[in-house]
Design a protein around this nucleic acid. Structure first.
Lengths: 216, 216, 216, 216
DNA sequence: AATGAATGAGATTTCATTCAT
DNA sequence: TATGAATGAAATCTCATTCAT
């Protein structure tokens, strides 16, 4: 933050609610909500403890009653984000018809919804993840790998069963996952595009990329 | 950089050459090359002038004979990156057959090549752009908008001519552009995937997303 | 301060008390007292935050809990000085007989006392005022203008009533005011000249300059 | 100088000619003229070698072919100022009738002229003198003391001869000298007051302060 | 006489954090 | 749970100056 007036934000700086994976109320929750907003719009390294305290109308030292250090706040947000994401994918997968097409559709739909409904969390999870030490990032990394595996697994089963004709499964999977990651960079909640429409469109785009016949 | 031992990097920290849009040699060029590497792997705000000077085996004050301020180094990299990107797209567009399909294929191919051949520059251009003041970012923003317009224009012409059946042109364009932006996050130059293969695959994926008939 | 050994001081470096317009006690008061001494003897621009912190047996960063920036310390001293000066003049004017002669005598007497009793504050107020931005200097400028107006008004009334025969009112006013401003450059508190004697002498000199008949 | 926009100047920043005590032409002269302007309006410590070089359209290192160090530039200006001042006083004294009244009138007239015609030099001589080490200031200090002695001597002779009735010779001398020193703080060359009128007025004010009978 | 590149010291200020209260 | 005061380290940047050219 600091002195030079930065007018452009990376992401919306609206005050968005946290997911249910966060603590329900109290100062700890307020800190997380405010940090989320600041980390998303200015970045972790460009947000100081003083910026955070100022936005909370607290003194910097007060934060240390709730978090051991600045990076623990980020780690908690990253954890919350990954848990919300993973749970959404797991639920979608469990509720889908047990076919690769249905599963990919469900996974991409859920992946998109999470990114569009929680763009700040998605921004922090995707862009500020690398500011964490390996130790603090580890729990999130596990979920990240499992989520990717779910999608890759469905793609490969679909290919084996002849429903998909991917040009290159790994490249295509990266493209599909990336479609979601980019959402907070351009999507505006409350704008002209509905979250549900976006999720459906992304699901169909994924199937098109995979060469699924009926998706024209 | 700071204290906490960060083992994971955001992008390759290999020493990659700059594009021809950069100054040919001398200390200014060395500063840009080194800054590119550091900004790409650790981020602009997590790279200090001291880190940069140390990597260059110079004293911090020596940098100020070449750049007025830290953000001017970033601005120059962002400018170089956008110019290289824009020139690649322009050349590809000019050399392509004058049909929407050929043009989209050429644009996506070029877009992908630039991101895969200059992943550090792509990372800095895409992720650290927001650290610049509006004033310093303005020249790059112009090129960014023009590049997006080139693609969008080809998509809409293809749709009008019946070669494309996009589900939603704006969402699809964002997905296509985003495919490139994500490359430095996962693609390793010199790894198992060739740049040319990646570029061709992305071009075909784009046509599939646009619902181009023969791309199955 | 810096390297070159400066042996000569501009003003006494004795530790003089601040006026009652200053905060009564605490670190903020200590900072102001020490800054006053340093700014008066070495000048604002030649006194670093480190010099100030060293003299206070504090770390430089500790000062920022009390003042937002170095120039805010100067601005506060300038404010205190102007308030003490203006109040002294106002009180003297109020308590004087309502004749121009008595008023000029009272104003010059008070003006002189303030400069002789607070030579460091007078030095900082007169010589370092220009180091402040217009914004920070504004409150002091208002008092300065009002004080000058009080004197000028009395002079012009005395002239209109025939008690004064000034050669040139504006030049004479500048000379009278300047007599006070020069005090910290030569007057030594505790030296051979008493403050009260100096104040009386300056008052009579002012009346002589104004061509007041009985002042021989 | 530096970043914060300082709008108020201590003295006129017009480009005024140097006295004949300065080198006649060439870069050394240009440096002195430009330094005079900057030191007078912003102060010695707030003017950097870079500021000076920039104003001269030279590189900072070029200055070192002409002056050994920054303080040598100031010392030279201080020397020039004191020589011009002392010569003016000496000439005026020599040409005056050999009476205390005529000598005081001549000395004050010359003292005033020098300050009014060279306000920048007067400002630097009076306010930045203290930035010099004792060694560099010594030659100027000699002239300063001799000039004060000339005036004090005339005053005491006039008192002994009954032409002056000073309330306190030392205080009065300080007031008379101070009248001149204050000139650059308020007097504007080319403004409504002529230099000659100012010099005459100051001379009469001095005689009034000294209690000279006919000066009413 | 002037330049470009560099330096070592130091400038002001901000950083995350601690600790007594 | 929060505060005010303080700290040590580090941030960006400027300083006067040097030196090879």
């Amino acid at each position: 933050m600091s002195t030079p007036p930065r007018s452009r934000l990376r992401a919306t700086d609206a005050r968005l609610p946290l997911t249910t994976a966060a603590p329900p109320e109290g100062t700890r929750r307020r800190i997380l909500e405010t940090a989320l907003q600041l980390f998303a719009s200015r970045g972790y390294h460009d947000t100081s403890i003083r910026d955070l305290a100022t936005a909370l109308e607290l003194r910097p030292s007060a934060l240390y009653a709730h978090f051991a250090a600045k990076d623990h706040v980020l780690a908690e947000l990253v954890r919350i984000g990954h848990e919300a994401h993973f749970e959404a994918l797991e639920t979608a997968f469990r509720d889908a018809q047990p076919t690769p097409v249905a599963q990919v559709r469900a996974l991409v739909h859920a992946h998109t919804r999470v990114h569009a409904e929680h763009p700040q969390l998605a921004m922090v999870v995707n862009e500020e993840f690398y500011a964490l030490s390996q130790e603090l990032a580890a729990p999130a990394q596990v979920l990240r790998d499992r989520a990717n595996a779910m999608l890759m697994d469905a793609i490969l089963r679909g290919q084996a069963q002849g429903q998909f004709a991917p040009l290159h499964p790994a490249i295509t999977a990266a493209a599909i996952v990336g479609m979601g990651s980019r959402i907070p960079h351009w999507f505006e909640p409350g704008g002209p595009i509905e979250v549900e429409a976006l999720a459906n469109t992304h699901a169909e785009l994924a199937l098109r990329m995979l060469g699924h016949a009926s998706s024209t």
